[in-house]
Design a binder for these strands. Structure first.
Lengths: 347, 347
DNA sequence: CTGAAAGCGCTTACAG
DNA sequence: CTGAAAGCGCTTACAG
């Protein structure tokens, strides 16, 4: 078996109490004793056992991160931010990839329920209802990301989606567009709806014509099919620009243009939202709005840790600024190296 | 505080021993007693506390997953597979995103060292040397993915990289190519080297000319720059096809062609390896070799769980089959919907 | 500056 | 079928 605090105490000729205090530093220990104990610990290869410490202290230094799909670049990036911040505060992250299978996801709720974690960062999209989540979480500290959990007073970390929509509309208006098609998610997804609202408000303000809209389901295939249908239904194309509320859908539209030999941006300009890697390497590269997703994760995690430490939180959280990334799909670069202009959202 | 096993025992009028056995099912309990206890647990909202159970049992039902970068699609997908399998066996996954910062990564080694996890799935690329890893892991059960840890007898889960290279070479030869450029990673990365070996062996067998090679560092930028240099150094292009040992580099090469108005696959055919999402949506879509990465994660995790249960493992692990995905970057589809032909590696 | 002992909330060998 | 009690390896209030 592994060596325990008693073994160290015996060999060093002190009490377990003293060994514990040498490790934690929570009580002064004479230099001589400390050195002796440290030497013994090193010799025996003693490492305090987490499980025992957890039980004694009533906490685990573990944070639960509930995301619907770690394979999605957004959540992977978010995870990165959470993980990084947790590590820098001595916490570790338990990943609960809830997926879409309720059955297997129950393990994750049990985890939360059994106090295996000290707190939770939760991102909507799991196969649970908000009520189930709240029941499992009970009074555990909670921070949410991107979408609210109804009936919860937990802080919400989100990007300034509205302003992202505004930036895209302004950019397209400046290029001379006055008619546009908006590809959005199914109703109920607040992030997509905010982006549409921002776009529509600015578009109207700038003298744009009434928008045509279609539901692209927030996926590549959905965007591709919805855009395809729009082209079929309206061959004369009552619009010259497309705003998709995420990059997946924008890439779907781009794909249709590629197959039909429609020049982008010559005939149609296309803009997305999120700045996923695939949009950086597509031809043409995709104009989009970047969110600082890793930073969302960092902030969510540091809020949670503040809560765990009993520190006060700001009452309201400011949406994180977003940035417009102008690439080739709206504005063709003539230089061999495409330039990337960035308008910061909080200008 | 939360309700303990003693509370339940007192209210139900039985001993803590009996409550424990109702929960675990490890000892027969009379129907009447069981029902009474279950009713009481439900009423009080009792959930056994994990920390206490962990200490008593000497295990945590937690698996440590060490990956270099969860933001990378390969590792995100791998994580998904590990997580899924772990959940289905009642285990949870602690994510240790080692990144490239040694300092913060120490938290993760401490985690392993302090027995906070029952076992480890390790994927190379962390800022630790193999020796440091092995020292921290000690005698904890370990399974490695993709790259071996030297001086460890741990099982290794890997794709059939060699055969992937063979498949690409055969495909390009069938299309009539006889001269090719290979973009590979820096030496020492076994996965990349196997792919090159498979390609080169088949290429020679099929009558191809000696290969030109360049180091693209396994990244988008590296591939782009290396390919750029190859074009500059050899304007007459002594090759008609490019095989990059991963998709990132292939997309970099594709990018250069796009900027220089070089037709792909008309003037140059390009193939990659990995089947990352960006290659599915690029124009032209990228011919590549798909690995079943999530399955690698599943297998790694189930091996680890077998080890944890003391079950025997197969002595040698068969490399997982790969599949060639023919897309537009080597063979332009004339139908509006590009067809996707799949050759299985184990045919 | 240091130690003996109780306690964290479970599990389980032992006894009945 | 059931219970009393020891034990898992730490932490810490209390006492000196």
């Amino acid at each position: 078996m592994s060596v325990s605090i008693k073994d160290v105490a015996r060999v060093a000729g002190v009490s377990p109490t003293t060994v514990s205090h040498v490790v934690s530093g929570r009580r002064p220990v004479s230099d001589e004793t400390r050195r002796k104990v440290q030497k013994t610990m090193a010799e025996l290869g003693y490492v305090p056992m987490r499980s025992a410490r957890n039980l004694a202290l009533g906490r685990t230094m573990l944070i639960g991160l509930l995301v619907p799909d770690i394979g999605n670049a957004f959540f992977a990036e978010l995870t990165k931010g959470v993980e990084r911040t947790a590590a820098s505060h001595g916490y570790n992250v338990i990943l609960a990839n809830t997926g879409f299978d309720r059955q297997s996801a129950l393990t994750h709720l049990e985890l939360v329920h059994s106090r295996a974690v000290d707190g939770v960062v939760y991102s909507a999209g799991s196969p649970f209802t908000d009520d189930e989540i709240m029941a499992a979480i009970g009074d555990l500290p909670l921070v949410t990301v991107d979408e609210t959990v109804t009936a919860s007073a937990a802080p919400l970390i989100t990007s300034d989606n509205y302003n992202g929509g505004v930036l895209v509309a302004r950019h397209l208006l400046e290029l001379g567009h006055r008619s546009a098609l908006v590809l959005h998610a199914a109703p109920g997804l607040e992030s997509s709806e905010s982006r549409v609202r921002g776009f529509a408000d600015e578009w109207a303000r700038g003298g744009g014509a009434p928008l045509q809209q279609a539901d692209g389901g927030f996926t590549y295939e959905g965007g591709r099919d919805a855009f395809h249908r729009c082209l079929e239904d309206d061959p004369s194309r009552g619009w010259t620009a497309v705003f998709a509320t995420n990059d997946e859908m924008a890439l779907g539209a781009l794909r249709v243009c590629h197959e039909r030999r429609i020049d982008v941006p010559g005939e149609i300009a296309i803009a997305g939202f999120d700045d996923i890697p695939a949009g950086r390497t597509s031809g043409p590269a995709l104009t989009t709005v970047s969110q600082n997703v890793a930073e969302m994760g960092e902030i969510a995690c540091s809020y949670l840790i503040k809560k765990l430490n009993g520190e006060a939180l700001p009452d309201s959280t400011m949406p994180l600024p977003v940035a417009l990334l102008v690439r080739e799909s709206t504005l063709y670069a003539h230089a061999p190296q495409p330039s990337e202009r960035s308008d910061h959202g909080d200008e």
